[in-house]
Amino acid sequence: MKDVKERSAKIYNKKAEKYEKTISGKMSVSLEQEMIKKICVRDNDKILDVGCGTGTLLSGLTRWRNAEGYGVDVSEEMIRRASADFPDLHFQVASSDDLDFEDNTFRIITVCSAFHHFPNQAEFIQKAARLLTPGGRLYIGVVAFPELIRISGNIADKVLPSCKVKRPSTHEILGMFKAAGLTKFRVHKLKKLLMISAKKPESEALPSEA
């Protein structure tokens, strides 16, 4: 898994300076704008964006509210840019399976166009569930690929030795949510964005906390 993180960091370090002009960067910006419209942020919320890139999603979510934003990414250059562009937010280099935060901290956790890079997707969702406050919600935004293209992409990536990505289906993500004890599932398809979210129960213990 270390090799996967190092490979991702190297790729995005190279892209960081002009990320928004790349094909993947333009797609991410488009998805972020749709997520910003759909996610309800309140004053005093704490928000964590995992795979935050240059920080634009986190900035958009916190722009009109007195909310505290935290972003993590494996790319040092992405974090450098985010920290320079948005000094009022908190950024650090970290991977999806190395989130050093207290449990029950964030009302909102987001992932946009990055989940397919996470080496331990189910474990990340288990961790995110613990980091959420009771009643908090995890949002995962992905490109709304037709199912045949999603499956074909997964097959192609298995063949290519340099690719270590997995694009799970909506059903698979909902299964991970359920296994983590999350509830109140929502699935939104908005233009190019497929956003899948789930809520941490207000009072029930999560399976890993029982």
Rank of each mutant, 00 (worst) to 15 (best):
C163K: 13
L99R: 09
T170K: 05
G141A: 15
R80H: 04
F101A: 15
I149S: 05
G71C: 09
T133A: 08
C163Q: 14
N104A: 14
Y70N: 08
C112V: 13
Y139G: 10
L131I: 08
D103F: 01
C163E: 15
L138W: 03
S113K: 00
D85A: 15
R107L: 12
P87R: 05
D100I: 12
L58R: 07
G60W: 00
L89R: 12
I155G: 02
P134A: 15
D98V: 05
D97V: 07
C52S: 15
P134M: 12
R167M: 03
E102Q: 13
S162G: 02
S169T: 15
I155A: 08
F86K: 08
C112L: 04
L89C: 11
Q92N: 04
N104Q: 11
R63L: 13
L132H: 04
H116E: 08
L99I: 09
F145W: 10
S169W: 01
E77K: 12
G135P: 14
T54W: 01
I149M: 13
F115T: 09
R80A: 15
C163M: 15
Q92S: 15
R150I: 14
N66V: 10
G71P: 09
L61H: 08
D97F: 03
D85Y: 02
S152G: 05
G55S: 10
Y139D: 10
N154V: 09
E123R: 07
K166S: 06
I151T: 05
H116A: 13
A67H: 08
R80M: 10
P146R: 05
T56K: 12
R107M: 14
G53I: 11
G69N: 07
S83P: 06
V143N: 02
G69T: 08
S59M: 11
A129N: 06
T62P: 08
N120F: 12
H117N: 06
N104F: 03
E68P: 00
P87L: 04
P168C: 07
K158Q: 14
A128E: 01
P168G: 03
P161E: 10
E123F: 09
L132S: 09
R130W: 00
E147T: 11
E68W: 02
R80G: 13
A67G: 08
R167S: 01
I155V: 13
F106Y: 01
P119G: 00
T54Y: 07
S162L: 10
S162N: 01
V50L: 06
G153K: 05
D88Q: 13
A84W: 00
E147N: 07
P119A: 03
T105L: 10
I155C: 01
L138I: 15
L160V: 12
C112W: 01
Q126M: 03
I79M: 07
T105S: 15
A129V: 09
W64I: 05
R107D: 10
F124L: 07
F101Q: 08
G135M: 11
E147G: 07
R150W: 06
P119C: 06
G69D: 05
R167Y: 05
L89K: 14
S83L: 06
L160Y: 02
P87T: 04
D100Y: 00
L58G: 10
H117G: 02
I149E: 07
G51C: 05
S152L: 14
R65A: 10
